[in-house]
Design a binder for these strands. Structure first.
Lengths: 197, 197
DNA sequence: ACGTAAGCTGAGGGTGTCTCCGTTTGGTGC
DNA sequence: GCACCAAACGGAGACACCCTCAGCTTACGT
């Protein structure tokens, strides 16, 4: 899974390539956190002290770079989801996980969402790894919450992730910022609870 | 208000200027609907059969152009809000208006929202006309809905509009598209209703 | 019909994306 | 060690977009 490591099929990466790969990743992480996912790729290459061509060699598209950068946190969210499956309160577990997801989306100025949701149900592109992980991690939590009647039975996980990302995006430039994301999320989550008519 | 008309203070626009103004507006409307609010300004000028300089003469910033394009529909939404103030069901009236707003935001691929919400509580820029209109139109409906106990008393109109725009943005590229906007909106609106506990 | 201010234009400078090919270099077999 | 070569690097170049400005064109009042 880790592109820097030796694969059984292909040759291991050359030492310089491996070094540059991680340099790019570090520069990208910083740039995305600072300027959002629209950060200049040229700038990222510059920060890494490498030519733009090298960046494109490792990450042919902007999405490839985003995926690599987000891989860690997505895996983190995935693990958190797995852990929450043992929680005694399935409804709260789902809500907590969505809150954590919103937190992540906000850090990268909401646009992280484009990778996790729209991007890949978007026609052509092959399902991104990040997206798949998020969907299946969330799905498990959602099903459990629905089985325990803590969440409306007609909700789908894709909708929920879209929603979370939309909110994070909308709160992006607001002075309220982070706070507004959570505020809107609370409002929306409140709507997930079933009730009589 | 209409920039094409004679103002008492300033001279009327020259005939060619007036003609070009509306040409640009038409081209922009089409381009924004087709490509979202990130559409290329050079392309808009080209479509209108005019030089890029002319576009900038009439609309010094992208936002100015957006405002001009959206002016009509914003006024429409404003009127609709006023009409809904007479509705016997204040809660439903607010919900209907938010649905109509979401409809508009979706047509322009969600990004219309950046003009209506974030843009102007965003630091420097002077409060945009569109934004002000939307806020005050919505405010009236919201207050009435809250007074009739149909909506949680702690919600603010800015939050609601952010929310609607966020959802429209998130649904933007999804194949579900329009449908998903409404779906997510229904979920979120459900959360606005107060209840015990 | 003419003078002039309002209006129009597009080249140009800045930034960004992405490609391509000549050059450099790490790793391997001898 | 050394020589070879595929892998990796670099950055110029083609193209798109944003925005400005100096010089040209034209509508309109008199």
């Amino acid at each position: 899974m880790d592109a820097t490591e030796t694969s059984a099929v292909r040759r291991p990466m050359r030492a310089d390539a491996r070094r540059n790969y991680t340099r790019l990743l570090d520069a990208a992480r910083a740039a995305f956190a600072e300027h959002g996912t629209e950060a200049s790729l040229e700038d990222i290459a510059r920060r890494a002290g490498l030519g733009i061509g090298t960046l494109y060699r490792h990450f042919p598209t902007r999405n490839d770079l985003l995926e690599a950068v987000f891989h860690e946190s997505v895996v983190g969210l995935q693990e958190q989801a797995r852990a929450l499956l043992d929680s005694p309160a399935p409804g709260e577990a789902l809500m907590d996980w969505l809150r954590a997801t919103a937190q992540h989306a906000t850090t990268y100025q909401g646009l992280a969402g484009s990778l996790m949701t729209s991007m890949l149900d978007d026609a052509t592109s092959s399902p991104s790894d990040c997206h798949t992980r998020m969907l299946s991690a969330g799905e498990a939590l959602l099903v459990r919450a629905q089985e325990s009647k803590a969440v409306r039975p007609d909700v789908e996980i894709g909708e929920l992730l879209s929603l979370v990302n939309g909110l994070a995006w909308a709160a992006r430039r607001s002075p309220a910022g982070q706070d507004r994301t959570h505020r809107m999320l609370e409002l929306a989550l409140w709507g997930l609870v079933p009730r009589e008519v």
